[in-house]
Design a protein around this nucleic acid. Structure first.
Lengths: 126, 126
DNA sequence: ATAGATGCAAAGAGTTTGCATAGGT
DNA sequence: ACCTATGCAAACTCTTTGCATCTAT
């Protein structure tokens, strides 16, 4: 079974206190506040473990490094700010898109990413 | 200005004759049929040039290497097969999704990726 | 002839893995 | 005490860059 290490708790704490998905690098920096010697490899290993246990989920956006968040119930999407590049959660969903799939294809899921400016960056020049 | 080299023509030819977006590796393999000594660095450089000229466009899917296709008019999305991982074009679009953006956010675009099984892989066991 | 394009190899960025050691249990 | 998790560094993959050479114009 798995152990409860300070490293793992620190990663969990960082993810839990964030309101948006974080990159491994951001998680490393945040968790180093609790566990100074923490290495990036451990962050990746802990994340992998959390994913397998279903505690966290990966958020992979086009052309971006994967980000991670604590698992939420239900299906949701993300919004990426073009100014600050941060990613935020979006609760809605466009619904069933299977009408868009090509004929003969069997659709079983979809991902949607919205782009624009987050509340803090609206008005900021690009 | 830019020159018309055999390498560039070969890349263009491979992209044009494909009905789906290709990875740099697939492009390399395809184009080496025309230009045996072709190197991967040149493929990247040619792709970069084609993107700047607007001749090709990049298709970046979550957690995947970027793929490239000749530029098409208009907005479209993609379908990725979970069995063979190939990516196909989808002509439809769910329409305006700005209602999904969080309050105070300014949305200016979206990406949609459909997942499932392509016509050749329907029925194949996973 | 000239300047941009190519091919190779080395350099970067992000992620994973090997291995000896620290630390949960 | 045992055995997993850690930290470091090396390995890997994908992409970019430096540089001498080639080639389209």
């Amino acid at each position: 079974m798995q152990r409860n290490t300070r490293q793992k708790s620190a990663v969990r704490a960082v993810l839990t206190s964030s309101h948006r998905p974080l990159t491994p690098q951001e998680i490393l920096e945040g968790a180093q506040g609790d566990v100074p010697g923490l290495g990036i490899a451990t962050v990746y290993r802990v994340l992998k473990g959390l994913l397998e246990e279903g505690e966290a989920s990966a958020v992979e956006l086009p052309g971006q490094a994967a980000r991670y968040e604590m698992a939420h119930l239900g299906h949701h999407h993300h919004f990426q700010c073009r100014a600050c590049d941060k990613v935020f959660e979006v609760s809605g969903c466009p619904g069933d898109l299977s009408r868009l799939a090509p004929a003969g294809f069997q659709m079983d899921g979809h991902e949607v990413v919205l782009y624009g400016r987050c509340a803090s960056c609206v008005g900021t020049p690009s």
